[in-house]
Each structure stands twice: as structure tokens, then as C-alpha cells.
Amino acid sequence: MVSSKRQGYGGVVVAAPVTVPYQRFSKETAHWWIARALRKLTRSAGIKPADLDGFSVSSFTLFPDTAVGLTQHLGLTPRWLDHIPFGGASGVAALRRAARAVQAGDANLVACVSGDTNHVDSFRRMLSSFSRFAQDASYPYGSGGPNACFALLTDYYMRHFGAKREDFGAICVSQRENALRNPHAIMKKPLSLQQYMDARAISDPIALFDCVMPVAGAEAFLVMREEDARAANLPYAQIRSTIERHNAFAEDPIQMRGGWEMDIDELYGMAGMTTDQIDVVETYDDYPVIVMMQLEDLGFCAKGEAPEFVRSHDLTIDGDFPHNTSGGQLSAGQAGAAGGFIGMVEAIRQVTGSAGPTQVKDAQTALVSGFGMINFDRGVCSGAAIISGSEAS
């Protein structure tokens, strides 16, 4: 149900998107990667760390520390602090909370940062303590990680809606083409549909190129007042609308829809827009089946019609439906929880005209979608945001 009392985000903007280039493996800590992102963020915005009075952090490998531990580690003294453990939904959640803090006067300048390291063994160690549900209900039965979980979802989706592996492959191939224009992307070689189809099996029906590549890296952006962004001569994006939902449709026997479906009217209603007015779409993409789900639940096609939608659209930067223009996680890499930030950072670049080689011509409005915290047969967290360039109507 749409709330008529929901306040918009007028006067609050998002700016200074930064990426710390990814590495396949790193001996550094998550603290190191987050510190590099914060340094790059402040330098790009022409501010000092002491100017930040708000700090938001998302990370898996920061454990046992949290955001509060980082304040001492990095020498910050914020009056507003947030730690967001929502995985792939963290970017949207960070934006929402930081924007409301600035709007309420609890903070003036909030750095939203997400980063993780990737030691040789860090992914296995992260999975071992990912959630109590996974420890008690999944791992004892052999579902030792996200590959098995998403294989379950992918198989059900294929059986229920008639999707083919080629349909998922179209997403992966188009994102690889986009990634070849992104200097930060880990994947540097072209990917053909035949190569996708011939790839070795990982967890039936998932094969190699359906899976993200864990990497080390970090992403960040600033949330601030529009008047302050103008005074600092910073390019910025308007926040048109956001939604967030957790544990949506818990009664469904297996997840085939996410929380976006519950709040889609509010997402477009607050923005005063329709799907036809979105120039760029950045979905969370740890596995292509989740991209299909988001295309449906975000209103670009009806439930079960995403395979046909993918077949009938060009998802590349120069296509008629520019999607995951950085290459997304499937080709740029998944820097842990920063996988929930990569779409937001790319969207900010797109609508401010600063995306460089991945820039979509005349992009004014972008939709960013997040999805996180998979537990066997479903992801628990979802969110989305619509942002636009400062000159968009």
C-alpha cells in the first residue's frame, strides 16, 4: 500500500562516487580497503576527514570490528554512525538512512563506504559464519554456499517459467561486453554465448559464468545537502525515491519474487515517474536469475516474462535497455558487501555524466536495485532507488 505521508528527499543529494580498483586476492584487511576508499572520497570531494560528521559502513570481512571500531582506526569523530549488514541491499539502505539523517539535521556530510578483502581462504571463512540459519538448516544438508542456493532458485525459475540457459547467458554476455569498457573490471576477455554454454558445471543448472568472482575492493559515495554540493562545485544526483523491504513474502514456498513487488507503486509514485523514463538500470547481479526477478518485480515486464524481455532487448551500454553498465558483479567482480554498492556508484556516475568509457548517452535517470542475505531458498533483504541528474525534470 502506498503511503501518502511518505516524505520525499528534496534538498538532499548524492555525490562523489569512488571505486578503489579491485584485486582478485589481497593480503590487506577490510580496514585497509575501506580506508583507501575514504581517502579517495575525501580527496575527490575536496574535503578533509574531519569535515565528515556522518559515517556509514557495510562489510563482511571487517569482523570482529564494526563501524564504531573504524572510527578509532581511521581517526573519525562522527555524530551519526551506521553499520549496515545487508549485503547486496546495503547500497540502497545506506543511501536511504544517510539521506534521512541529513534531512533531519543529524548529520551534514555522510560518507557511505563499503569494502572487503579477499584472502585465499576468506570466502570460505565468511560462509562458515554467514548466518545462524545457514549453519543450522543449510550446511548440514550439503548446501555449503551461495552456488547451491542459487542453483535451487535457478532450477525452479526455469521449470516454472520456461527460461533457458541461453536467456541467462544473454545477461552474462552483455555484461561482459560492458565490462570491457570499464577499466576497473576484473574480467578482461570477451565472452560469447557459446563459451557461456560450454562452461563447466558448478551446481546444476549453474555453470561457471553464472557465478560472481569474489575480489577485494571498495566503493563509496557522499550524501549531503544540495546547497553544500553546489557550494563545493560537486556534480551531484537528486534522490527521487527509495524503497526497502525485508523478509518479503515469507509464505512463498520458494522465492520467485522479492520485496520490490510490495513497494513498486511507492518507488515510481514518489519519483513521479514510470519505467519508460528510466535511462539506466543497475540491478544486483550475483547470479543472473536474480536479475530476471528484479526486471519483473521492478515493473519492466510481468512475472515470468523476463526471459522474453532479455531476448528482445539489447542490455549493453549502447543498447535500448542499458543494464549494469560497469559490467556488474558478474564481470567487474564482487568485492564482498561492496557488491551492494557497485550499482549505486555506477548510477551516480551515469546521471552526472562522469562514467567515462561506460557512459550511456544522454542518461539522466537511473534505477538501482539491491538484493542480499541469501538463506537457502531466498534472499531476505531488498531495496531500490531512483536517482537523476541535477538537471533532470
Rank of each mutant, 00 (worst) to 15 (best):
M1L: 11
R6K: 13
Y9G: 12
G11C: 05
V12I: 15
V13G: 02
P17L: 13
P21F: 09
K27S: 14
K27E: 14
I34Q: 10
A35C: 06
K40N: 12
R43Y: 06
S44C: 09
A45W: 04
G46K: 08
A50I: 10
D51I: 01
L52M: 07
D53A: 05
S56C: 15
V57W: 07
S58M: 00
P64F: 01
D65P: 02
T71A: 10
H73T: 14
L74R: 11
L76F: 00
P78R: 02
P85V: 02
S90D: 01
A93C: 05
D106C: 04
D106L: 15
A111S: 06
G115Q: 01
N118L: 09
H119M: 03
D121Q: 05
R124S: 15
M126C: 03
F130D: 06
A137I: 08
S138W: 05
Y139D: 08
A148I: 11
A163H: 09
E166D: 12
F168M: 10
G169K: 03
N182I: 06
A185Q: 08
K188R: 15
Q195G: 15
Y196W: 05
R200A: 14
S203C: 15
D204V: 14
F209R: 00
P214S: 12
V215W: 01
A218H: 03
F221H: 04
D228E: 13
A229L: 07
N233S: 13
N233F: 00
N233T: 08
Y236C: 04
A237V: 05
I239A: 04
H246Q: 06
N247S: 05
E251R: 02
I254W: 00
M256E: 03
M256P: 00
D263T: 09
G269D: 03
I278Y: 04
Y284I: 05
D286Q: 04
Y287Q: 05
P288M: 03
Q294C: 08
D297C: 08
A302G: 02
P307R: 10
V310S: 11
V310K: 01
R311Q: 10
H323G: 12
H323C: 15
T325Q: 08
G327N: 04
G328S: 08
S331I: 06
A337G: 14
E346G: 02
I348M: 12
I348G: 13
Q350D: 12
P357L: 11
V368R: 11
F371T: 13
G372W: 09
M373V: 15
D377C: 10
V380H: 01
I387Q: 00
S388T: 06
G389C: 09
G389E: 07
S390V: 12
S390N: 07
